[in-house]
Amino acid sequence: MEPTIIINIKNCCGCNLCVLFCSWRRAKYFEPGKAAIQVNKDYKRNRYQIVLDEEKCDRCMLCVAQCPTGTLLKGEK
């Protein structure tokens, strides 16, 4: 079975830690725009959207492990 990332967006606090860990692990520098996971934000209304680039993501689950709010959870396909 293949692991997947389940997104529970209502918990997301917008910390970007998923993006940062993903970016760091790949490149050993911080280039958030190139991470496999992105957090799009509507600050005014506090609405967030997580976009996962399935091609780029290799399911290392680092973002899941580091997400402080349980927004990202490990699932199986």
Binding site: C13, C15, N46
Partner: peptide, 16 residues
């Protein structure tokens, strides 16, 4: 309603 955080902050002391 929920906690909010600044960039790179695991504490998320702000609120919505």
């Amino acid at each position: 309603e929920k906690s909010m955080a600044c960039h790179s902050c695991p504490i998320a002391c702000s609120h919505w």
